[in-house]
Design a protein around this nucleic acid. Sequence first.
DNA 1: GCAATCAAGACAGGTTGCCTGTCTTCTCGT
DNA 2: ACGAGAAGACAGGCAACCTGTCTTGATTGC
Lengths: 150, 150
Amino acid sequence: MSSRLPNTAARRRPENLGVLLREPFRIASEDLHRRFAERGHPEVRPPHGNVMQYLDDEGTRVSVLAERAQITKQSMAELVAHLERHGYVERTRDPSDRRAKLVRSTARGNELYAIAREFVAETEALWAEKLGKAKIRQLRTLLEELNAAL
Amino acid sequence: MSSRLPNTAARRRPENLGVLLREPFRIASEDLHRRFAERGHPEVRPPHGNVMQYLDDEGTRVSVLAERAQITKQSMAELVAHLERHGYVERTRDPSDRRAKLVRSTARGNELYAIAREFVAETEALWAEKLGKAKIRQLRTLLEELNAAL
DNA sequence: GCAATCAAGACAGGTTGCCTGTCTTCTCGT
DNA sequence: ACGAGAAGACAGGCAACCTGTCTTGATTGC
């Protein structure tokens, strides 16, 4: 084992690819939730994206949401309960299976999609302003390839 | 507001840049911690990276670590206590300030750095194998620019 | 056509990683 | 030499995950 193992200041040059991927996401996510709070939705926190992100128009079962988000159905049920308490989703009976309930976005939930779409557009515009549209397109293409490969 | 707001399956085309950034990081992080567990370090979980990542060779105060990791010193103290209980770090008195203690990596802690370095090398090699070295270099450059701009 | 199995979700309880607030100890500038 | 402030310990709380178990209803095999 070579000398000087810890000391991040030294090791962090060149910066780890993992950190380079995580940082922009982290910042954007924080900004988005700050925006939600400003627009009157402070109860919506990052994990709740695991619900809203995976909802279908017709409604979606908790167990399906759990599978899509890669968490247990108990955890998902808790996130859904929180969003239901605050009026973002509703749970209706599934006509095709009396054991099941379908989680659907309410009108209030739809406000979140509107805010998120607006935010995404703004963020991409901001990034394009800093790096140029061509580089953002290139970055997106490379990331799509990388994601497809994993 | 236009029709069909939820329904991710439809909206997820083209995939959100945020998700494209997060996914590779998430997968790599999971793989790394699986590797830690395989090599006899199952007690080291993702948040503990917030400690090890920011340690200097000479030792670092809890309050400094907290600031670097952007969490409260209480939270950082808890992560450090966990790592200390499992032998990854030790806390020694700071000779220059009798209120303070310096957190330093132990020999066991240094094994984590070795495993992480090996993992990073393997991962970059794997990615280069899938996309080609040129694209990985390009991706890194773009991400560095993006990070610098934020 | 009914019993056995399986799927959906509810309920109980536990852990971890964060938080705020407060307290003690020690340092340092005036 | 003393008051402000920093370092960290201690108390308590909460959110987001987990495992395990139970009930209810659907499905399937004989």
